[in-house]
Design a protein around this nucleic acid. Structure first.
Lengths: 147, 147
DNA sequence: TTGTGATTGCTATGAGCAACAACAATCGCT
DNA sequence: AGCGATTGTTGTTGCTCATAGCAATCACAA
């Protein structure tokens, strides 16, 4: 393919990358795009994978509880769970008259395992990009920002 | 306000926070929400502030060049710039028959300065939340992830 | 000078995600 | 029995981003 450097590389004055908040956003976007692309091979999005993993770890968990854990509002859980249910990955069983317990189907468990493998590999590659002397500081620093 | 701990704190098994990619996303979301709320006082969103700062640093910059710098597609620049123009913050002057140079208006420069102050303060508070021994490692680690 | 290909700005459209208000049914506790 | 809180749900809105397509313009070479 053609090298489109016929125009000189843009050397714009850009003070933004020196801001940690900006780099945080850009790094998160880049990582999210990469992971989304990989999970797409399983017909999953990141939220789907998060939900599946949590349901797998916590059988009979409630939609509300999931929402609280992931900071997703109850109302927005509805279409997400419906997708997973329609895909045959999760099942709902009534606990109460008002609550329903969520579990992985056999197919759901299988897909979840594939997603976990994919994510672990992705995380490893992510960390590998970081210079060794900074690597171990990333997770604690990030955690301090949201936990 | 009432302490709503009448239900025991949810102790769900959650392997997600140990993943750097997940924490990256959560941290970025938390930071973005906080900054958006503050910039809202100026009737600005984060993209708006980014655009204003870049235009301020690079008078007569082109919409396309801005998009390249911020990884925003040309098509999506249109409504963004229209908002800023309608708000009287930027002006367009024709350079070519096809290109237009963007500059801050007097009011735009003032708002931009307020936004910069607000952002600097926000960034400082962000860094302050990070334990000192991890603080200086964050920016280099993040930069390695997207640059 | 006249093509040809690339660039610019724009319209239109759709998807994904999240916030909000509102509602009926149900539960927990008094 | 009654009251407040919780649950799942519907519907609406807004922001962000991706895509496709279009007309006008520019740069460069034949």
């Amino acid at each position: 393919m053609s090298n489109n450097n016929r125009y000189p590389r843009c050397t714009m004055r850009d003070p933004l990358p020196s801001l940690p908040g900006y780099s945080l956003r850009r790094a998160a976007n880049a990582a999210a795009a990469e992971l989304a692309s990989r999970l797409g091979e399983l017909n999953l999005r990141q939220v789907d994978a998060s939900l599946l993993i949590l349901i797998g770890e916590n059988p009979d968990v409630t939609a509300s509880a999931l929402g609280r854990q992931l900071d997703i509002q109850r109302a927005n859980m509805v279409p997400l769970l419906k997708r997973l249910e329609d895909a045959g990955l999760i099942e709902r069983k009534a606990i109460d008259g008002k609550s329903q317990g969520l579990t992985l189907t056999a197919q759901g468990a299988e897909i979840t395992q594939q997603a976990r493998t994919m994510i672990e590999r992705f995380e490893a590659e992510l960390l590998a990009r970081i210079p060794a002397q900074h690597r171990d500081h990333l997770l604690p620093a990030l955690d301090a920002l949201w936990r």
